[in-house]
Design a protein around this nucleic acid. Structure first.
Length: 881
RNA sequence: GCGCGAUUAGCUCAGUUGGUUAGAGCGCACGCUUGACAUGCGUGAGGUCACAAGUUCGAGUCUUGUAUCGCGCACCA
């Protein structure tokens, strides 16, 4: 809706892009590594997936980091916020492959080189989306230094680290059982596997003994994966198991294949599970692999990289997928009469987070990284506090993971990524940052796990391995803010590489933010229909059904669209939602943010109206030496100073919810509801303190609110007399205890109490809020100044009239209000009765406590005194009723 | 299975080292065309603080147990 003379409301959709342009034109986001003695504050953004679009987690994390960055920029620190994107090997490759398939071709057909060119082009076209979205959110990052995990300098860093770790013996090539993802046709790391519960069938299969042992002609094994039996190399029993231990050393014959399998003894076999006899398939089961190694058994591959039966041991099953083979094998066994039992069995099964397909453990030749040597220093820096993890509970998870660290499978059978810098020629192996001299060398076709390059992010983005001024100035970074789920995948590995290659921890504080769930408690996800695009909140957009507002009487409302809340509101809402644990998305919090922005801009408009003819006064400000004298002025100065300190401290402590909600409470509950109302009776022309204090209080409020709601504060700042330059770079004044006044806070607190009491009385006694009523003040502790404030906002006027009055209890006495014909006797009597019952009950409970001998003898004196004071006050009030 | 965390108003959440009559926002009810704001203002109703036992003069807060939910980690075919 366009502005019109009637609607001067603040419109985020109009103001926010303008304000952002103002910041960029002024270059306030740009970092400068100049060593000018200033303290530095730096953050490296967790690089989002280059294929991705902004989701709620990015928006929350962007809001968090920007709040930290803006606060510290206004403190005068030399600030650097590095942004960029991650090449996201599998995700990106998949997208481009899909496009090729849609065109009727494939990556194999176009070849590696063309495929990579195609992928680069794709990234150029779509890779910028998410960074643009961060800008829309108001993130004040140093966009001029945007990085990508495959840009030239970054590649150099990755190669250098790989070669160094190879030379140090930490990176090696080995044949090992890995998590094979048939979907992406690549090995993946343990951390990319997720377990899901599946109902399979536990099948009991008879393997005939080659020679009967006594009466026994067969052993029965139990398995959920009969299709792997073609690769069986042994049957194991527990050597303590009296049923079977005498079979150790005997031989069984594998159905279909005819292979002779030894019966071996191993403690690993549970006697109370299944049949007590375990078939051993080292090539396709992690436990069997280890057991096979212990017994010197040779693994036999029967499932290939395509997830199909291979090996040629049983031609009738060759080429079937694992799932098909399972059915076929069980059917064939059933025909042979070899099935001894079948029962449903619920267990957890590994799936690829990448492709969603079931993991096939396969033996293959891969590059690995030994982690034990790197883990210890990474654990030490957390134990000794050089890296602090917030909330603290997460550091226990971090340490527990490092304690049980396993080698990391580095190689991925992909094309998009950092190709492994190793070349082979016959038996020769060469590892180096450039190709070896001579003919006949062939480079390893695999690429590195994307997280290998991500692990270098905090220093590679600052120019490492060059010794750049940026690296000197901004490393170690200050804070890393991220979701918990990549604490291991990423954070721990950054600590390891940072310590080893950049000579220091990569950051001093790690903040693990909440995961925002859908309102029904499920995870936010596009496929579930529980995700929302933050841009749809900012600029308006479709509201998915689970986000529908609850109608009256539980009726489902048409979800409709989100209104355009604006970036400030979304930032506020996300910060207000966040917590030390996961939270549900709450549109109300976003709406609260919208209200705050509207309220604040209205408050500024009010102030501008009062100040525009008193510019000099408005600009003068308030210091400890130039304190105002009036009660409400001293109060707002003290309250503003306090909230400014609290808010900054809460942001520093990563308590974003309290920071945001505290600002809301202050702006609504103190600045607007009280201060602005209290000063409305004053005239700036004759009252120089008014312009001075009003201008100061609003400027300070805009400053301290700016890290949370940067747009509306900047826009308002530009209209406010006495505010110079851009708010984003306006220096925060040092804290000054002289601005605080507990006395003014207490005295004005009483004024507020009395006004509220009178309003409440009016409402309960059916006295209209409008008319100004005469009152006899029969109470101690109120000076003329306080009484004048009370009179105006409670709509009372002092009187000496001795007529009939309604007594209203206030601290220190009562107000005798001459309500005349306004009072509704019935309502008044009901009010008094109700209140009398409450007060009597409170007196009874308090006196009960005070007459308890043990309470009086054991409770601290101040608690007893408070109870006595309470009972006195209640008795006083009862007297007026 | 082991570990961590949660359970407070209809909804989403605060609640400091145990100490008044447990708070906020939204929603709800009533009132208000008060000069920044009706996307506003004022007032109010609404809670056995999951359950049970214990410690204490006193427990939403501390201890133990139970239930429900969530999240990690480990998993036996």
């Amino acid at each position: 809706m366009p502005d019109s003379p009637e609607t001067t409301r603040y419109e985020p959709s109009r103001a926010e892009p303008e304000v952002f342009a103002r910041w960029e034109d002024a270059g306030v986001f740009r970092s400068d590594p100049a060593d000018d003695g200033r303290e530095t504050f730096s953050i490296a953004i967790p690089p989002p997936n280059v294929t991705g679009a902004l989701h709620m987690g990015h928006a929350l994390n962007g809001s968090i980091q920007d709040a930290l960055i803006r606060l510290n920029r206004m403190r005068g620190k030399n600030v650097r916020w590095t942004v960029g994107t991650d090449h996201a090997g599998i995700a990106t490759q998949t997208k481009v492959e899909q496009a090729l398939v849609a065109e009727g071709t494939s990556r194999e057909e176009v070849g590696r080189e063309a495929f990579l060119e195609r992928t680069q082009a794709w990234r150029q076209q779509y890779g910028g989306t998410i960074i643009g979205q961060f800008r829309r959110l108001g993130c004040s990052a140093d966009y001029a230094h945007e990085r990508f995990t495959m840009d030239d300098g970054y590649v150099e860093a990755v190669l250098k680290v790989f070669v160094a770790l190879y030379e140090q013996g930490l990176i090696y090539r080995d044949t090992y059982l890995v998590n094979w993802d048939p979907g992406s046709r690549s090995a993946i790391s343990d951390l990319e596997v997720e377990d899901r519960e599946e109902t399979d069938t536990l099948v009991e299969i008879a393997y005939p003994l080659k020679e009967a042992v006594g009466d026994l002609t067969e052993v029965v094994v139990a398995t959920v994966r009969p299709e792997t039996m073609l690769g069986d190399v042994a049957v194991a029993v527990n050597p303590q198991d009296d049923r079977f231990k005498h079979l150790i050393g005997s031989t069984v014959v594998l159905p279909f294949v005819g292979r002779e399998l030894p019966i071996i003894g191993d403690d690993y076999v549970k006697t109370d599970f299944g049949t007590g006899c375990l078939k051993i398939t080292p090539a396709h089961d992690p436990n069997d692999f280890e057991l096979g190694n212990r017994h010197g058994l040779e693994p036999l591959n029967v499932i290939g990289e395509d997830g199909r039966i291979t090996g040629g041991y049983a031609p009738q099953f060759e080429g079937l997928t694992a799932a098909e083979a399972r059915t076929a094998i069980v059917d064939a066994l059933r025909e042979q009469g070899a099935i001894r039992g079948e029962e449903p069995y619920v267990h957890t099964v590994p799936f690829s987070q990448r492709s969603g397909e079931r993991i096939e453990p396969l033996i293959s030749l891969q590059w690995f990284m030994r982690m034990d040597e790197l883990a210890k220093p990474a654990a030490d820096v957390v134990r000794d506090g050089r890296v602090r993890i917030h909330p603290e509970s997460q550091s226990r998870r971090y340490l527990a993971w490092l304690d049980e660290i396993r080698p990391w499978v580095l190689s991925r059978q992909l094309w998009w990524g950092h190709q492994i810098p190793v070349w082979y020629r016959a038996d020769e192996v060469y590892c180096g940052t450039t190709a070896p001299e001579g003919d006949g060398w062939e480079r390893d076709p695999d690429v590195l796990d994307t997280w290998f390059s991500s692990a270098l992010w905090p220093f590679a983005t600052l120019g490492w391995p060059e010794e750049t001024p940026e690296l000197e100035a901004f490393y170690p970074t200050s804070v890393l803010s991220t979701a918990r789920d990549i604490l291991f995948l990423w954070v721990a590995r950054m600590v390891m590489t940072g310590l080893r290659f950049a000579g220091d921890v990569p950051f001093t504080d790690v903040y693990c933010h909440s995961v925002i769930q859908a309102p029904d408690g499920r995870r936010m996800s596009k496929s579930l229909g529980t995700g929302i695009d933050p841009l749809d909140l900012i600029d308006g957009g479709p509201r998915p059904a689970v986000f529908a507002k609850k109608g009256k009487k539980g009726k489902l409302e048409d979800p409709g669209d989100f209104p355009a809340y604006g970036a400030d509101a979304v930032r506020f809402g996300l910060l207000a939602m966040s917590s030390t644990q996961d939270v549900r998305f709450s549109e109300e919090k976003i709406a609260q943010g919208k209200q705050l922005t509207t309220k604040l801009s209205n408050a500024v408009r009010f102030a501008v109206g009062r100040l525009e003819e008193h510019l000099e006064g408005a600009a003068a400000g308030v210091t400890g030496e130039t304190l105002p004298t009036r009660l409400e002025d001293r109060w707002i100065v003290s309250r503003t100073e306090r909230i400014a300190r609290e808010t900054a401290q809460r942001i520093d402590e990563f308590d974003f919810s309290k920071a945001a909600l505290g600002l809301y409470d202050f702006v609504y509950g103190e600045l607007c509801d009280w201060y602005l109302e209290l000063v409305k009776g004053r005239d700036a022309a004759t009252d120089p303190d008014l312009a001075r204090v009003l201008g100061w209080a609003l400027r300070r409020t805009l400053q301290i609110a700016h890290p949370v709601i940067p747009f509306v504060t900047e826009e308002s700042w530009s209209t406010l007399p006495g505010a110079e330059g851009l708010l984003a770079v306006s220096p925060l004044p040092a804290t000054d205890d002289a601005l605080l006044s507990s006395d003014a806070e207490e005295r004005l607190g009483r004024v507020i109490d009395v006004i509220t009491t009178v309003r409440s009385w009016r409402n309960g006694a059916n006295v209209p809020p409008g008319p100004v009523l005469p009152v006899r003040v029969e109470a101690e502790g109120y000076d003329d100044e306080a009484l004048a404030l009370i009179a105006r906002l409670a709509r009372l006027e002092s009187s000496t009239d001795a007529g009939d009055a309604v007594p209203v209890a206030i601290p220190g006495g009562q107000l005798a209000i001459l309500a005349g014909e306004h009072v509704d006797p019935e309502a008044e009597r009901a009010r008094v009765e109700k209140r009398r019952a409450e007060v009597e009950q409170a007196i009874a409970s308090t006196e009960g406590r005070l007459s308890n001998e043990k309470f009086v003898s054991r409770a601290p004196a101040e608690v007893i005194a408070a109870e006595r004071a309470k009972v006195d006050a209640l008795r006083e009030e009862l007297r007026t009723l």
